Simulated scan of single mutants.
Amino acid sequence: MPTPLPTGPLVTRDTVFAQLRALGVEAGEILLAHTSLSSLGWVNGGAVAVVQGILDALGPYGTLVVPTQTGDLSDPAVWGNPPVPEQWWETIRATMPRYDPLLTPSRGVGVVPETVRTWPGALRSAHPQTSFAALGPRAAEITEGHASDCRLGERSPLARLEKLGARVLLLGAGYDACTSFHLAEYRIPTPLVRVGRPAAGGGWETVTEVSITSERFDELGHDFERDRAVLRGKVGAADTRLFPVADAVAYAERWLPLHRPRAEEFWHPAD
Results as ranks from 00 to 15, higher is better:
residue 260 R to F: 08
residue 251 Y to P: 11
residue 232 R to L: 02
residue 259 H to E: 12
residue 256 L to N: 11
residue 253 E to F: 06
residue 232 R to P: 04
residue 241 R to A: 08
residue 252 A to V: 04
residue 234 K to R: 15
residue 239 D to W: 06
residue 251 Y to V: 11
residue 251 Y to E: 11
residue 252 A to L: 05
residue 233 G to I: 13
residue 230 V to G: 11
residue 235 V to G: 04
residue 235 V to M: 01
residue 240 T to R: 07
residue 241 R to E: 04
residue 260 R to C: 01
residue 241 R to K: 03
residue 250 A to F: 01
residue 231 L to D: 01
residue 237 A to C: 04
residue 253 E to M: 14
residue 231 L to W: 02
residue 236 G to D: 05
residue 254 R to T: 15
residue 252 A to C: 10
residue 250 A to M: 01
residue 239 D to R: 14
residue 248 A to L: 01
residue 241 R to M: 05
residue 258 L to N: 09
residue 242 L to I: 13
residue 249 V to Q: 01
residue 255 W to K: 11
residue 242 L to A: 08
residue 235 V to D: 01
residue 229 A to Y: 04
residue 241 R to Y: 10
residue 247 D to K: 07
residue 247 D to F: 06
residue 249 V to Y: 07
residue 242 L to T: 05
residue 250 A to D: 14
residue 236 G to L: 09
residue 251 Y to Q: 11
residue 237 A to G: 05
residue 235 V to W: 00
residue 245 V to D: 13
residue 251 Y to F: 15
residue 247 D to I: 07
residue 232 R to E: 07
residue 233 G to A: 10
residue 256 L to D: 04
residue 246 A to G: 04
residue 236 G to M: 05
residue 246 A to N: 09
residue 249 V to A: 01
residue 244 P to Y: 09
residue 234 K to Y: 14
residue 254 R to G: 15
residue 249 V to F: 06
residue 249 V to K: 05
residue 237 A to E: 05
residue 230 V to R: 10
residue 260 R to P: 08
residue 241 R to T: 00
residue 260 R to H: 04
residue 239 D to L: 08
residue 258 L to P: 02
residue 259 H to T: 06
residue 232 R to S: 07
residue 254 R to Q: 15
residue 233 G to H: 11
residue 258 L to C: 03
residue 245 V to K: 01
residue 234 K to C: 06
residue 230 V to F: 02
residue 244 P to V: 13
residue 241 R to P: 04
residue 237 A to I: 02
residue 230 V to Q: 05
residue 238 A to C: 06
residue 230 V to H: 03
residue 257 P to R: 03
residue 252 A to Y: 07
residue 256 L to M: 15
residue 245 V to Q: 06
residue 258 L to V: 11
residue 251 Y to I: 08
residue 258 L to H: 09
residue 234 K to S: 14
residue 261 P to A: 10
residue 244 P to N: 13
residue 239 D to N: 14
residue 233 G to E: 05
residue 233 G to Y: 11
residue 235 V to A: 03
residue 231 L to H: 02
residue 255 W to I: 12
residue 254 R to C: 13
residue 244 P to K: 12
residue 250 A to P: 03
residue 243 F to N: 14
residue 238 A to Q: 06
residue 248 A to E: 00
residue 253 E to Q: 15
residue 239 D to I: 10
residue 244 P to H: 12
residue 260 R to G: 05
residue 248 A to F: 00
residue 248 A to V: 00
residue 236 G to I: 08
residue 261 P to N: 13
residue 242 L to Q: 11
residue 256 L to S: 03
